[in-house]
C-alpha cells in the first residue's frame, strides 16, 4: 500500500466519528480503500453505541415532524447516499455486485433433479448483514416479471428496467458465441458454475446455495496465470442463487479461483482455494 493510500485510510476512525474537516471527509470518501471503508462503516456502527441515554423529545416535535413529512418528497433509492453510506467503486480489490438469479431457471437444477439443495433456510443475522454491508444486492425477480429478463443458456438473468451495465455485461458473457462453462461442487455441498468467454476476456461465476463466508471473512475471486494470482473482486453469499461478473480481464489460459479471505479481501490469496477452474 502506498503512503498516500495509507494516509487516507488512516482517516477511517475519524471519519466514523464525524471528526474530519469537510475537505478531509471528501478526500476519504473519494479515495479510501475498500478495507478502510469497511472499517469506517464498522466503527461508525460502534460509535452509535456511545449515543448515550435517551431523553424524551417534546410532544411538539412529533407533531411537527409528522406534519412536515406530509409535505416532504422522498428521494429515489438509486442516488448515492450522502451519509452514512460509504460504498464506492474504486481501488482493488473490488467488491463484486451480485445479480440474483431465478433459481427455478438454473439449468443445474433442471438437469439434475436428484441434486440435494444445499441452500440454507436461515436468513442472514445482523452480524452477517453488517459483514455484507458494503453493497446492495440486486433483486431480479420483479424485473423479470416486468418483461426485462434475458433468457440465456437456460439461465434467466434479471435485468432491471432502465438497464444496468453490470448485468448487461454478465449477460454478454453468458451469451457469448464462444462461452464455455464448467460446473463444480463446492466444499459446502453447493454448486458453482464458472462461465467464461475468451473472446470477451471475461468470466462469471453462478453460485447456487453457496453458504455465507464465516464472520469477518469474505469470498474473493482470482484470475491465476503464469504471473500469479490477481484479484478479481470480493463477494458475499447468502445461500441463494447469485451470479457475479468477475473484475478484470481473463487472459488466455488463466485459471479462475475462489478463496476465503479476511473482510475487505487480500492482495494475494492467503488460504487454499475452494474453487479452481482452468479456462
Amino acid at each position: 500500500m502506498s503512503d498516500d493510500q495509507r494516509s487516507i485510510d488512516d482517516l477511517a476512525a475519524a471519519y466514523a466519528l464525524d471528526a474530519l474537516s469537510a475537505d478531509e471527509r471528501a478526500r476519504f470518501e473519494a479515495l479510501a480503500s475498500p478495507e478502510a471503508r469497511a472499517e469506517a462503516a464498522a466503527l461508525a456502527d460502534t460509535a452509535t453505541l456511545l449515543a448515550g441515554d435517551a431523553v424524551a423529545a417534546p410532544a411538539s416535535l412529533r407533531v411537527s415532524v409528522l406534519d412536515a413529512i406530509g409535505r416532504e418528497p422522498q428521494l429515489p433509492a438509486e442516488a448515492t447516499t450522502e451519509r452514512p453510506a460509504t460504498e464506492h467503486a474504486s481501488a482493488q480489490p473490488v467488491a463484486l455486485q451480485p445479480v440474483s438469479v431465478e433459481s427455478q431457471s438454473l439449468d443445474a437444477r433442471a438437469t439434475d433433479p436428484n441434486r440435494v439443495s444445499a441452500r440454507t433456510s436461515d436468513g442472514p443475522g445482523p452480524a452477517e448483514r453488517r459483514a455484507r454491508a458494503r453493497w446492495r444486492p440486486i433483486r431480479a425477480v420483479g424485473a423479470i416479471a416486468a418483461g426485462a429478463a434475458l433468457l440465456l443458456g437456460g439461465v434467466a438473468l434479471g435485468s432491471q428496467l432502465g438497464g444496468d451495465s453490470r448485468q448487461e455485461a454478465l449477460g454478454a458473457v453468458v451469451s457469448a458465441a464462444d462461452a464455455e462453462r464448467t460446473e463444480v461442487a463446492m466444499p459446502d455441498g453447493s454448486t458453482a458454475t464458472v462461465i467464461w468467454s475468451a473472446e470477451r476476456g471475461q468470466s462469471a461465476i453462478l453460485f447456487d446455495g453457496l453458504s455465507a463466508a464465516p464472520e469477518g471473512r469474505t469470498y474473493q475471486a482470482w484470475y491465476i496465470d503464469a504471473d500469479g494470482p490477481e484479484s478479481a473482486g470480493t463477494f458475499e453469499a447468502e445461500g441463494g442463487s447469485t451470479a457475479f461478473l468477475l473484475d478484470g480481464a481473463l487472459s488466455a489460459g488463466s485459471a479462475v479461483g475462489v478463496t476465503i479471505e479476511p473482510d475487505g479481501g487480500s492482495d494475494a490469496p492467503t488460504t487454499d482455494p475452494i474453487l479452481v477452474v482452468e479456462t
Binding site: A41, A68, I69, P73, Q74, P76, R130, A133
Partner: peptide, 17 residues
C-alpha cells in the same frame, strides 16, 4: 427525521440496523 424521511429509500436493512 426529515432527512430520514427523504432518504428512507436509501436505507438498506442489509447494511445495518
Amino acid at each position: 427525521y426529515l432527512e430520514a424521511w427523504r432518504q428512507a429509500k436509501r436505507f438498506d436493512p442489509d447494511r445495518g440496523a
